[in-house]
Nucleic acid binder design. Structure first.
Length: 467
RNA sequence: GGUCUCAUCGUCUAACGGUUAGGACAUCAGGUUCUCAUCCUGAAAAUCGGGGUUCGAUUCCCCGUGAGAUCACCA
């Protein structure tokens, strides 16, 4: 096993949406590609924002996608002693001090600076003789204002000035560490080699580098992912703006490999014209340096197309296993071989499983005659009812003689076209409508074959009566 | 407002300074014996603006403009 170690570190404040999942995916791909270790860490240091059940929900989401982790989940709330140890180290080395001010006072400083149109820096108010830290006050980092230069695997070489370096809080007055502090400790203790995170953290990297120096820790490789933007394209995708729970996609019948394909190619490509990737191909081909620097808009239509492509690549048996819960109610009493025949017919037109019921219901239930299908048909509506009746009766007579093999059905329908000298658009539409009573259905002979003689004739009779 | 990042068809993107700026999704039009879909063919569709550098800029530099992020005892 290589020493590459990556982590996904969500906070348990609700469900995961595509943005968070993509960060997890890229970290996972790096670990898997290198034969390294993928770690799950729960950043639960903000008790106020914690949402019940979200830890389970997060794990369920990752499991659905197959983003399996090798270590964890670790919980930061169970590691407070570790953070205190490092905090003490910083106090001892003179790089941390007790914050003597109340939040209100700090807020005043902030407003003062704003009034003077100057950027607010806490360190301008750094107390000369801070009180001894007893845990009742926040513990602040005593920063060392300086310029920082560093490399980001995605963004390239970056540089920042000393004006962005400030004294930030390490430990809150409730004893919990801030993210800014504990993620650095954890990444170090867990020997994380590659930190993959969203662009919202980019502006904070200089202050992390400052802290790394104070702790004498070598920073990991850093890679900043551009944001996934909302479909309006004007802001970072977030729960507030209606980003969906990733598990909603599972419940609508998207394949996990489709979601992974979609998210991986949103802001990344392998340099070829390949669009559809299996997960294994992604593990092999993924490369941080080919990640786009700019944010990409989330386009669900593209996800839909990718999902259709993956569905078509599935073997019938695989597909059958995956659609189990999506069959229409009426299908439950039919046997497996019949459902598989139906599935084989609709596989090429299925884009997500939730549309399975509307696509297949007529195979399982006798639907009432729907006159709108004929009156709304651009060819059939030109015909009078008696003409249609005569035509359908001829079809019935011929089908009654059939053994209902696909070959025989094809042959009979072709002969019928000749003998009636009707266009396929008329004859086939009529038979299709009579036997399916649905606006859309798979190709005709296959559908007739699967439905079987008994049902087909009965449905034609039903249609004849209505004409 | 300060700071940071980014900028190619509507969308996702390709193009070691030299291409008729390519592909995919979506759209539209044809075709594949019926519908919906698949598949095939075709159409329309882009280098944000201005300056440089260069024989030559989508590509390098500068200035604008636009977009996003960030400036918490949230992560």
């Amino acid at each position: 096993m290589s020493d590459v170690r990556t982590r996904f570190a969500p906070s348990p404040t609700g469900f995961l949406h595509v943005g968070g999942i993509r960060t997890a995916l890229f970290a996972w791909l790096i670990a898997r590609q290198a034969g390294g270790t993928f770690i799950l860490r729960i950043e639960d240091t903000d008790q106020a924002r914690e949402v019940q059940g979200s830890v389970d929900h997060i794990q369920e989401s990752l499991k659905w996608l197959g983003l399996n982790w090798d270590e964890g989940p670790y919980f930061q709330s169970k590691r407070l002693d570790t953070y205190k140890k490092y905090a003490q180290q910083l106090i001892d080395s003179g790089r941390a001090y007790a914050d003597p001010y109340t939040p209100e006072q700090v807020q005043e400083f902030r407003e003062e600076a704003k009034k003077e149109k100057k950027p607010f820096l806490y360190r301008n108010h750094r107390p000369e003789n801070p009180p001894v830290w007893d845990g009742s006050k926040p513990l602040r980092f005593k920063s060392n204002p300086k310029e920082h230069s560093w490399h980001d695997e995605v963004m390239g070489d970056l540089h920042s000035g000393e004006e962005v370096i400030d004294d930030f809080i390490l430990l809150k007055s409730d004893g919990f560490p801030t993210y800014n502090f504990c993620h650095i400790i954890d990444d170090h203790e867990m020997k994380v080699t590659h930190v993959i995170r969203g662009q919202e953290f980019l502006a904070s990297v200089p202050k992390y580098l400052n802290l790394y120096e104070a702790l004498e820790i070598k920073p990991p490789v850093m890679a900043t992912m551009p944001h996934i933007m909302s479909e309006q394209g004007n802001k970072k995708l977030s729960k507030r703006d209606g980003a969906k729970d990733i598990l909603d996609y599972r419940d609508e019948g998207y394949l996990p490999e489709s979601m992974i394909n979609f998210l991986a190619t949103l802001g990344w490509n392998d340099g070829t014209e390949q669009e559809v990737f299996t997960v294994n191909e992604l593990i092999k081909k993924f490369d941080l340096s080919r990640i786009q620097k700019s944010g990409a808009q989330f386009d669900e239509r593209r996800l839909l197309w990718i999902n259709g492509a993956h569905i078509r690549n599935l073997s019938l048996n695989d597909l059958y296993e995956k659609v189990t819960i999506f069959w229409p109610e009426e299908a439950k009493k039919t046997d497996e071989s019949y459902r598989k025949e139906v599935l084989a017919l609709v596989q090429e037109r299925l884009k997500y499983f939730a549309e399975l019921p509307e696509l297949t219901r007529f195979f399982f239930a006798d639907l009432p005659v729907n006159p709108g299908l004929i009156s709304g048909h651009k060819q059939l509506k030109k015909y009078e009812a008696p003409q249609l009746k005569e035509l359908l009766e001829k079809a019935r007579d011929s089908l009654e003689q059939s053994d209902f093999s696909v070959e025989d059905l094809k042959e009979r329908l072709n002969k019928l076209l000749e003998s009636t000298s009707e266009k396929p658009a008329v004859l086939f539409s009529l038979i299709r409508i009579a036997t399916t009573q649905s606006p859309a259905s798979p190709e005709l002979t296959g559908s007739l074959h699967v439905l079987g003689k008994e049902k087909v004739l009965a449905r034609i009779d039903q249609q004849l009566q209505a004409l």
